[in-house]
Amino acid sequence: MRTLVLFAHPVPESFSSSLHKTVVDTLQARGWEIDDCDLNAEGFSPVLTTEERRNYHEEDINTGPVAEYVERLQAAEALVLVFPVWNFGYPAILKGFFDRVFLPGISFKLVDEKVAPNLTNIRKLAAVTTYGGSRMRAFLSGDPPRKVVTRPLRFVMHPQVKTRYLALYDMNRADEKKRAGFVERVKTEMERF
């Protein structure tokens, strides 16, 4: 299965990096074809420019500045996001990827003035993430990252997309045992994914 892994953490020795490695290694061991996109290492610019915003709805030209990433997204049959939750949201580089690459005509299309999914090539979606705070704290804040993955992001993909959201909460107080347990959970879930 062709899988785009989007990784969004700037520090190579971070716990997120070990989760990223676990995802890639596990899926490769299953024989999956991995397009490993480390947004920071690739120097992806998350900034939606003035011209990009002006041309946002112009489907014949809106993909120009991010054509390589659009091609990679359209070639994928599965999408796996690996990122930390910072300030109740995505790292800026991942949010910028959504802003710049999930464009009209790419992730969605307008049909009779209604939004319809357009990434129906993607049949599996997973997010692997960590939160500094507790699950209760995330719940009380509305847990925006979880909601975006399991609702609007999921909506633009195949109608029967298999979705997994794997989160380690309270990372700021997680000991080695808890972190190792989460790595094992990620490995197990990716083996079943």
Rank of each mutant, 00 (worst) to 15 (best):
E184C: 06
I34M: 00
R2M: 08
A29V: 03
L119N: 01
P104A: 08
C37H: 10
L6T: 05
P12E: 07
E52K: 03
R179M: 12
A167L: 13
E71D: 15
G105P: 09
R2Q: 12
K95D: 02
Q28A: 12
V11C: 09
Y165I: 06
V70K: 07
T129V: 13
R100S: 12
Q28H: 02
N172H: 09
Q74S: 03
Y90P: 02
T50W: 12
K147C: 09
T120N: 08
F139C: 09
A92G: 14
K95I: 01
L168W: 00
E189W: 01
A138G: 11
T63A: 13
A41W: 04
V66Y: 02
K187Q: 13
P91Y: 04
Q74N: 10
D99Y: 08
K178I: 15
G132K: 09
L27H: 02
G64S: 10
T26A: 09
G89M: 09
V186E: 01
H57K: 10
D112E: 15
V148F: 14
G89N: 13
E58A: 12
T49F: 04
R135I: 11
N121S: 13
E113W: 04
R179A: 10
V23Y: 03
R54L: 12
E184R: 15
V149D: 03
L119K: 06
F155I: 11
E176G: 03
H9M: 05
P104W: 06
F139E: 15
L125P: 03
P10F: 05
R100A: 12
V148D: 14
A29D: 11
E13S: 15
K162L: 14
L110E: 13
G64A: 15
L4C: 09
A167K: 09
G64R: 14
R53H: 14
R185A: 06
P117A: 12
P145M: 11
R100E: 11
G31M: 04
A174P: 00
F102D: 08
A126R: 05
P91K: 07
K187L: 02
V148Q: 13
N118W: 02
F98V: 04
R179T: 05
E184A: 15
A67Y: 01
P144D: 07
V183K: 10
R72L: 07
R54T: 09
T49D: 03
L168Q: 05
G64Y: 06
M171A: 14
K95R: 14
P145A: 11
E59I: 14
D143A: 06
E13Q: 15
D99N: 15
H57C: 06
R185H: 13
A67E: 14
R72D: 02
T22V: 13
A127D: 06
H20K: 05
I34G: 00
A8V: 10
L19R: 00
R54P: 01
F15L: 02
R123I: 08
Q160F: 13
V111K: 15
R185G: 04
L125D: 04
D38I: 02
S107D: 09
V128W: 01
R192T: 11
R146W: 08
K187H: 13
A174Y: 01
M136Y: 12
L103Y: 05
V24F: 00
A29F: 01
P159Q: 02
F102Y: 15
R2S: 10
A75I: 00
W86L: 10
G105V: 11
L6R: 06
P144G: 08
C37I: 10
A167Y: 03
L39F: 05
E33Y: 07
P10D: 04
L94M: 04
L6S: 05
E191K: 14
V11A: 14
N87R: 10
L73D: 04
